[in-house]
Simulated scan of single mutants.
Amino acid sequence: MSLRNKITAGVLVLCSGALTAFLGTWEGNGQNVVYADNLARGLPTVCKGITKHTSSVPVVVGDYWSDARCAEVESLVISKGQLALADCLTNQAIGQNTFDALSSHGHNLGVPSTCASRAVGLINAGRIAEGCKALAWAQDGKPVWAYVTLPNGRKQFVQGLHNRRLAEMELCLK
């Protein structure tokens, strides 16, 4: 059974309640006013990490989004991302927690980056525990996916991003 078939059959759930709560922890709950995300070079962001790159609705700094609009667009954005993620996951043994952890990673960094990651390569190879750990750690033991590029081109470690990667790793390993 393909991963998409597992979704269609209800074995894996799109936009699960657990994933939505997890994203709220890291992306914010009740973030109804569009703001310029400093970690993303001022990218207009609203609700649980919705940006112009993920939303079909314009995302303009200062605009107010109702809770209902947030919920509707979040559901569409998260489900669309998860369907794209399912296309790059070939290991049929993936459970909901691993799928949700990878979905959070893709929601934060973009599904193409997640699909191209060492973590997904290991998970697809059947090395799920190693892949889950690769969401937060490089082979040399250094943090991964926890840096932002400064205007001068230098990379800066952000503890909050690493904390999120650690939480994704823990969810993935459950």
Rank of each mutant, 00 (worst) to 15 (best):
G131Q: 08
N163Y: 12
D67L: 15
Q139K: 11
V11S: 07
P151R: 12
V11C: 01
S104L: 10
A40C: 03
G62N: 07
A93K: 03
G30L: 06
A167Q: 10
E74L: 05
L135M: 15
D67Y: 07
C172T: 02
G153L: 08
C115D: 09
N124Y: 04
G121C: 09
D63A: 10
A84E: 14
G153C: 10
I78E: 02
V60P: 00
A138R: 14
L171A: 12
V11A: 09
L19E: 09
A18P: 03
H107V: 11
H53G: 09
L85T: 04
L161I: 06
V61A: 13
G24L: 06
C47E: 05
L171W: 11
G24A: 09
C115F: 09
E74I: 01
Q159K: 12
W145P: 01
C47R: 01
V61T: 14
S103A: 14
P151S: 08
V111N: 04
L23H: 01
N97C: 13
P143I: 07
L23D: 12
K133I: 13
A21W: 07
K133D: 13
V34G: 01
C88R: 00
G28K: 03
V34R: 02
C70D: 13
A129H: 00
L85V: 09
N108C: 08
L102E: 01
G28I: 07
K142P: 03
P44M: 06
D100M: 00
G62I: 15
V46P: 07
S104I: 13
H107G: 14
T149C: 10
P143F: 10
L3A: 02
V144Y: 05
N152G: 07
V61S: 12
A167E: 13
L109W: 10
I128S: 04
G81S: 08
E74V: 02
V111C: 08
C88K: 00
L171R: 08
L12A: 12
K80N: 15
T54F: 04
V34Q: 04
E168M: 03
C88Q: 01
N124T: 11
V77L: 08
N29M: 10
W26S: 01
K142W: 07
M1L: 13
G110I: 06
R118P: 14
V73Q: 00
A71Y: 04
R69H: 11
A116K: 03
V33F: 00
G110T: 08
H107R: 05
G106W: 03
E74C: 07
L3W: 01
I94N: 12
S117E: 14
W145Y: 12
S103N: 10
G121S: 14
V11E: 07
A36E: 14
L12W: 03
A9T: 14
S2Y: 12
Q159M: 13
H107D: 15
A86H: 11
L89M: 15
L43H: 07
A138G: 15
T51R: 02
S103M: 06
C115V: 11
Q92T: 15
F157E: 15
F99I: 03
W26N: 02
A138V: 14
V73D: 00
N91E: 08
